[in-house]
């Protein structure tokens, strides 16, 4: 089973990287960008085949290591191998 984890900054937390990307895009002539938020994306290849157990395991990984919940949110997508 494959897990895709998206880690994003919580709203309200300043994102200097995102702001730099937005400025760079604007200077390249891409108008109409209100905001850019930069996050992280991880792919995990899991041996677990049960979706529920896999989700619980990845939840725990996110909470304990992959995300810092002081500033970050995470989303998990599961896909059958």
């Amino acid at each position: 089973m494959k897990a895709r984890v998206h880690i994003t900054l919580k709203s309200g937390v300043l994102d200097p990287q995102g702001r730099a990307v937005r400025n760079a895009l604007t200077s390249l002539g891409f108008d109409g960008i209100d905001d850019v938020r930069q996050g992280k994306y991880l792919e995990l290849d899991l041996t677990e085949s049960d979706a529920e157990r896999a989700r619980a395991a990845v939840e725990s990984m996110c909470a304990r290591l992959l995300a810092n919940t002081v500033i970050e949110d995470y989303q998990i997508e599961l896909e059958e191998a």
Binding site: V13, L14, P16, N68
Partner: peptide, 10 residues
């Protein structure tokens, strides 16, 4: 408490 993020000028 808190967290240390990237410097604001990156």
């Amino acid at each position: 408490p808190g967290v240390l993020m990237a410097n604001r000028n990156l």
